[in-house]
């Protein structure tokens, strides 16, 4: 049994909130830079160059890449041989978010109630997903999610007879309807199988995978490539102004499901697609 004090968790979450919001991940940066060479639209190339420049300014000045610094989605993989002392894990994560957003000059975008809509003024609570795993460490991933893209996401309970063609049609339809709204070029996270909430969670987790890494299952990896081609044929382009680069990647995760169902969730994420992780 290894003991970990909550102060370590607070410090880690605080740091990751800032890192995720200031530093564009290198896989995305490369994809944007490559996109400049391949984009067929002048305006599209201009937009991609501005996004690269924007990311450089943000990293240099330690300011947010985008003003929508998101609702903090935090994934905790807790080793079963860890004992947390000094307080509750949930409180520690929220304290880390509170400090990270306050000290980091990040926007507080959370309201206390969906109807009353009063700002909590510290960006808490975070949305926390816990997973108990083997070992004596804690892996913390902070993935702040902006709502321009979150609002364009969708889930559909398909029938088994809809099959792979039904899944492809739903993904394409979701990205098509989103059009310019989610700040393309986007990353498309797809969760297929499980139950309704499992598919949604898989689609969110899919966004944590770098855009240059395909699913290890070759069948799924081919489907990811095929969907990316199709999406880029929609013509939406950088900032939605028309062009070839609409999706930087399609990341899919699959899970066993029920004899009667084929759940599909599509979580659209903007070209910033923030996530930062650390192991304690």
């Amino acid at each position: 049994m290894r003991e970990i004090d909550v102060s370590h968790i607070i410090d880690t979450v605080e740091r990751l909130c800032m890192q995720a919001n200031y530093e564009l991940n290198s896989d995305i940066m490369h994809a944007l830079e490559e996109g400049i060479n391949r984009e067929g639209s002048d305006t599209g190339r201009r937009v991609l160059s501005e996004l690269v420049e924007n990311a450089r300014i943000a990293a240099r000045e330690r300011i947010a890449i985008c003003q929508d610094t998101g609702m903090a989605v935090v994934f905790i993989e807790l080793g079963q041989d860890v004992h947390i002392k000094g307080g509750s894990l949930r409180d520690a994560v929220n304290e880390g978010v509170r400090r990270g957003y306050e000290k980091g000059f990040l926007r507080k975008s959370v309201v206390s109630d969906p109807f009353e809509r009063v700002n909590t003024e510290d960006n808490t609570p975070a949305v926390i997903h816990y997973d108990i795993v083997e070992g004596d460490r804690i892996r913390v991933t902070v993935a702040p999610k902006g709502f321009g893209s979150e609002n364009m996401s969708g889930l559909r309970m398909l029938k088994p007879s809809d099959g792979i063609e039904g899944v492809k049609a739903f993904i394409l339809e979701t990205v098509d309807k989103a059009g310019p709204n989610p700040c393309p070029p986007v990353v498309v996270g797809v969760g297929i199988g499980g139950t309704m909430e499992k598919a949604a969670l898989l689609s969110k987790k899919a966004l944590l995978r770098p855009v240059d890494r395909r699913n290890e299952d070759e069948r799924i990896s081919r489907l990811e490539e095929e969907m990316k081609e199709l999406i880029n044929g929609l013509g939406i382009g950088p900032a939605g102004l028309g062009g070839r680069l609409t999706a930087l990647a399609v990341n899919m995760e699959v899970f066993p499901t029920h004899i009667a169902g084929l759940p599909v969730a599509v979580n659209i994420s903007c070209h910033v697609t923030r996530h930062a992780e650390a192991v304690i």
Binding site: I231, G233, G243
Partner: peptide, 20 residues
């Protein structure tokens, strides 16, 4: 609307928008 005219220049795949 530039969103539609810009897109038309590059679009060669069309989604089927289906009712639930």
């Amino acid at each position: 609307d530039l969103y539609s005219s810009g897109r038309r220049r590059f679009q060669h795949v069309f989604a089927q928008n289906r009712k639930m």
